[in-house]
Amino acid sequence: MTARPRIEELEEEIVENFSLFDSWDEKYEYIIDLGKKLPPLEDEHKKDENKVRGCQSTVWLVAAYKDGLVEFKADSDAVIVKGLISMLIQVLSGHTPEEIIQAKLGFIDRIGMTTHLAQTRSNGLAAMVKQMKNFALAFKLQNESAKH
């Protein structure tokens, strides 16, 4: 079994990528590119119950639990937000519920996204993180009750 990269290592990769950019224009171009590359969510998942509240744009987020690991899929009608989600998925997907719940996600601040995005949009990002952690918590509780 190959070792899974730790969340902190994945965060570090993103921070390193961002350190190559000189300007915010470049950072945004990169985020937009990530957004465009994120595979679209199947239409069946684009329903109200999968919407993340607290964003100016619409964000859908779904999670699956397989072999002890959580896989996230998401989509948005806004491409910058989609790029941000793509990074969150890159970092959090493929980890155990416990790892996801414990994740500090300091990279968001280190790449300047908390300070750069306006309050409302920043809340959108916070809402996404919260939703992902909620999924992880739900899977964890499911696990525990299955054991009993």
Partner: peptide, 9 residues
Amino acid sequence: VHPQDLGIL
């Protein structure tokens, strides 16, 4: 184009 993306850029 989503208005939010335009607003950010």
